[in-house]
């Protein structure tokens, strides 16, 4: 078998992944690709299997069937190389509230083998980008919910990853904050060439040209640009109509908080 060129390989390649918790099948033969420089939305209601997929990609759970590669590095056999190219923003807060913003960056940098002298300039750049460069010395606990999530995203980019995984990264935020963060991450993908896998159950976070993968009960039901899905599945309807038609769900997939 020929090995893909890591420089040319997609940011993320998931092939034939299945996972179960005992008798309950959480993922069933899921395959997807996130090209570099693209924002890919993984849409599904709570319990669809999105977080399980994240846990498998980040090696929190072990892959028992199928393969996951990050920039051409299989997570199972080359975990170090794969994770070194991955930034992760989890659904639940992963910042240490007792530390300052800068201290959280320093800790994150150390976990990726980055010395403080390398972390500092990168942190300054990233914080400036999210408009929080004057808050580096503040305790994380003093930041607002939206600022916290921005810091988490910036922190996930500290080691210059090629893949950014965001698991419901805007959960609990107001509409304005969510829209701003989504726009930031879109810009990041376009300008820095980072592949982004953005899981959400909130339709309004998906832009019309974004590639969308609809995950429901562990299976992929549809994939394609949001605009095309809406047109092909719901006629003249919206992406929300298409999603409801696909899943038959009367789920909360509106505009969120």
């Amino acid at each position: 078998m020929t090995r893909p060129d890591p420089q040319a390989a997609p940011a993320l390649d998931v092939a034939g992944i299945s996972h179960s918790y005992g008798a309950r099948q959480a993922l069933d033969d899921v395959s997807l690709t996130v090209p570099r420089g693209r924002f890919v939305a993984l849409l599904g209601i709570n319990g669809a299997g999105k977080s399980t997929l994240f846990n498998l990609i980040t090696r929190l759970f072990v892959t028992r069937s199928g393969n996951i590669s990050i920039c051409g590095h299989p997570v199972r056999t080359e975990a170090r190389a794969a994770l070194a190219r991955t930034g992760v923003v989890f659904q639940s807060r992963a910042l240490d509230l007792s530390l300052t913003v800068a201290q959280n960056f320093r800790y994150q940098g150390a976990l990726h083998g980055m010395a403080w002298r390398d972390v500092q300039p990168r942190m300054t750049t990233l914080l400036a980008r999210i408009g929080l460069d004057d808050r580096a010395g503040d305790k994380v606990g003093r930041l607002s919910g939206g600022q916290l999530r921005r810091v988490e995203i910036a922190r996930a980019l500290l080691h210059d990853p090629h893949l950014l995984l965001c698991d419901e990264a805007t959960v609990g935020l107001d509409v304005k904050s969510r829209a701003d963060i989504v726009a930031d991450v879109h810009r990041l993908a376009a300008e820095d060439g980072v592949g982004v896998l953005w899981t959400t159950h909130l339709i309004d976070e998906i832009w019309p040209d974004d590639p969308v993968i609809v995950l429901h009960k562990g299976c992929i039901l549809a994939r394609g640009p949001a605009r095309d899905l809406a047109r092909d599945i719901a006629g003249d309807g919206t992406l929300q109509d298409a999603f409801l038609k696909l899943t038959g769900a009367d789920a909360d997939i509106g505009v969120g908080a």
Binding site: T58, R59, L60, R80, S92, R93, A94, D96, H112
Partner: peptide, 18 residues
Amino acid sequence: ETGAMRTLLVSPFPRSFV
């Protein structure tokens, strides 16, 4: 419980090491 542990566990260094 809070999720902070995940930061540690997704480090590229082997889990046994961290």
